[in-house]
Design a protein around this nucleic acid. Structure first.
Lengths: 207, 207
DNA sequence: CAAGATAGTAACTGATTACTATCTTAGTAT
DNA sequence: ATACTAAGATAGTAATCAGTTACTATCTTG
């Protein structure tokens, strides 16, 4: 399954190449471990020489930061769109859950990049970026849970931070087990079997 | 925080050195990314030269397989001991949950090794080993859930495979978020706030 | 106590890494 | 057309990786 571009053989502006490089990293991460994404591999993916990559990014870390920028924006707009359409907070949680799963199905490289970064002990700039990203996500979930409790939709004694952790854990654990199996197609059906269990866990009324 | 041995300066048998090498990998993994665990780093940790490591393991992959052997045995006996002491299946799930958390607190390097291996797309021998390990764990959870349903302790319409996935996901997701925060001390208290939510999710009676 | 077996050392090999200096060429404004 | 600018090519660099070789020191055993 090659994902190579038609490579128009022409020169591109620095900005266009930067976007192309980020796309190349994502494409490579779907089939290779992030360790294996060398500057040589990136250059090969877009039909450049290895040295040319450094015309557009000063260091390799800068490439990773650009990838995280893309992730932040994409995920942000994906979940914002999902939540905007629904009325009550519990429906918002369901929409958020499904949007998250759909995002991963569309971009299977993303969890790999996240896990790879989180597993590093050192607090690098890239890890800090991921940390902030997940923290904002978590805050959004907590807000929905607080609203749901205020409207009497969930257990009135709900531990919202714990429920938010469980929400993230449900998605992350599910994705990890799917990565383990190596079959991404099972992600969506399995997700819809997990969601009712979670909702009952936080005390939502009907199944 | 150095974890260097007193290094007795003497020769050790091949078997003893193999155990020492596995221990060195675990020690290194608590403070370094698995990529950074080079044969040089291992040798340095136990006070040998790099070449000497290859007296005891033919390849580096063999070292990783030995680490996974250790993990399989340790985890196996830890959870077996936890389950043996309790009577009903729901109490077994709670014991399993707590034993898993306690194991990770004792061996903080383990989730890092697991995540690092699962994130690789290639189906290497090491990844196969991890896959089997988690599959057996998952089977054990499923068995407990089936027993609990038979005894009427949980929702009679429970989706056991989904509930088993959620169980693993709860632990894995929780651990991942703790790795993110970088503070392992919060793991145990957070875990005890998550467990009631999970138990209600599968339809256990009292909180 | 001699002799074989084996743990360990020192120095290396070739491959690969991120990154860089110098040169070339394409696109563009004048 | 000519000159300037920036993208890319070519060909490097030093560092680091897993694994190997030739040799030495130590332990065990007949």
């Amino acid at each position: 399954m090659k994902t190579t571009m038609p490579l128009p053989k022409t020169r591109l502006s620095a900005e266009a190449r930067q976007i192309e490089i980020v796309a190349a990293v994502l494409a490579l991460a779907t089939e290779h471990s992030p360790d294996a994404i060398t500057t040589q591999a990136i250059a090969q993916q877009i039909g450049l020489t290895q040295g040319a990559v450094f015309r557009h990014f000063p260091t390799k870390e800068a490439i990773w930061l650009a990838v995280m920028d893309w992730l932040e924006n994409s995920l942000q707009s994906a979940i914002a769109a999902a939540i905007a359409e629904v009325g009550d907070p519990v429906a918002g949680l369901q929409a958020l859950f499904n949007a998250h799963i759909a995002f991963i199905v569309t971009h299977p490289a993303v969890p790999r990049l996240i896990f790879h970064e989180l597993q590093k002990p050192a607090a690098s700039a890239v890890k800090q970026r991921v940390r902030g990203l997940l923290e904002r996500y978590r805050q959004r979930v907590t807000t929905l849970l607080v609203q749901a409790k205020a409207q009497g939709l969930v257990d009135p004694a709900l531990d919202e931070p714990a429920a938010a952790t469980l929400f993230l854990g449900t998605v992350q654990g599910l994705v990890m087990q799917t990565l383990l199996a190596g079959d991404l197609r099972t992600l969506h059906p399995t997700a819809s079997r997990l969601l009712p269990l979670y909702l009952r866990g936080i005390g939502v009324r009907q199944p």
